[in-house]
Amino acid sequence: MKNFLTTGLCLLVSLAVNAKVYKVANPDEFQKAAATVKPGDEIVIANGNYSNWALVIPTNGTAAKPVIIRAETPDKVVFSGDASKAIFQLTGSYTQLSGINFTGCNIIKAAGSSGILVEMDNSKYCRLTNCTFSKNAAKTQFMPIVVVGGNGEGNRVDHCNFISNIDNQEVQIKITDKEVPQHTLVDHNVFRDKAKVAWPVFNGGECVQVGQDPILLGNQAANSLVRDNRFIHCDGEPEVISNKSTGNRYISNYFEDCQGELVMRGGHDCLIDSNVFKGGLGGIRINGTHHTVTHNQIDNIKTAIRLMYGMAKGKVETGFYIAAGDCVIKDNRISNADVAILVGDKKNQDWTGKFDTKRYPSRTMQDVAPYDNSIGKNIFTNVKTEMVTN
Rank of each mutant, 00 (worst) to 15 (best):
M1W: 09
K2H: 13
N3H: 13
N3Q: 14
L12A: 14
A19F: 05
P27V: 13
A33F: 05
A35F: 08
T36Y: 02
N47D: 15
Y50S: 08
S51T: 13
S51A: 13
N52M: 09
T59V: 11
G61P: 05
A63E: 14
R70S: 07
A71M: 06
E72S: 09
T73P: 06
F79I: 11
Q96L: 10
L97P: 03
G99N: 07
S113A: 15
S114E: 14
G115F: 02
E119P: 00
M120N: 02
S123I: 04
C126F: 03
T129G: 03
C131D: 13
C131R: 12
K135D: 03
A138L: 01
K139Y: 05
K139W: 04
K139T: 11
T140M: 03
I145R: 04
V146N: 09
N151I: 06
E153R: 08
H159V: 12
C160A: 07
N161W: 10
F162V: 05
I163E: 12
S164M: 14
I166S: 01
I166K: 12
I166T: 13
N168D: 09
N168Y: 00
E170F: 02
I175C: 07
D177G: 01
K178R: 10
V180H: 00
Q182V: 08
T184D: 05
V186R: 06
R192M: 13
D193H: 08
A198L: 07
A198C: 00
V201M: 12
F202M: 10
G205H: 09
G211S: 10
Q212H: 10
P214S: 10
L216M: 14
L217Y: 00
G218M: 01
A221L: 01
A221R: 15
A222D: 09
R230F: 10
F231D: 03
H233T: 13
H233S: 15
V240F: 06
S242I: 01
N248Y: 03
S252F: 04
Y254I: 14
E256G: 02
C258G: 08
G260C: 01
G260S: 04
G260P: 06
V263R: 14
R265N: 14
G267F: 08
D269T: 10
V276P: 01
F277I: 13
G282D: 12
T289L: 06
H290W: 10
V293Y: 07
N296C: 11
N300G: 11
R306C: 03
R306L: 08
L307Y: 04
Y309L: 05
M311H: 15
M311R: 13
T318A: 02
T318N: 05
Y321K: 07
G325S: 15
C327Q: 04
I329V: 14
N332Q: 08
I334C: 00
V339Y: 02
V339Q: 03
V339W: 03
Q349H: 12
W351A: 11
T352W: 02
T352Y: 11
D356S: 09
R359Q: 14
P361V: 07
P361C: 12
A369Q: 12
D372F: 01
K377A: 09
T385D: 04
E386D: 11
T389H: 10
T389Q: 13
